[in-house]
């Protein structure tokens, strides 16, 4: 897929652990892992909203489009 999820990078910058973010956002660690590893097929706006709120970032910091043709 051409959409790259940079959640790892943002988490490292904020020095926050996945389990901590999962608790703050209200999703399971397993679901956060699906998102981090790029296996997710869709992301709810409410989830994106909560992630951006707790990581104090923009959606563009987490999601990036790279043409992989």
């Amino acid at each position: 897929m051409s959409i790259i999820v940079n959640l790892d990078v943002v988490l490292a910058k904020r020095k926050m652990k996945s389990i901590e973010l999962a608790k703050l956002v209200g999703i399971t660690e397993q679901n956060l892992s699906i998102l981090k590893t790029g296996k997710a097929k869709a992301i709810r706006l409410s989830t994106l909203d909560a992630i951006c709120k707790h990581l104090e970032c923009q959606p563009g910091d987490i999601l990036e489009y790279k043409n992989q043709e």
Binding site: I27, N31, L32, I34, L35, K39, A40, K41, A42, I43, R44, T47
Partner: peptide
């Protein structure tokens, strides 16, 4: 269902 399971 699979798509729903992979929606975060």
């Amino acid at each position: 269902t699979e798509e729903n399971e992979l929606t975060v």
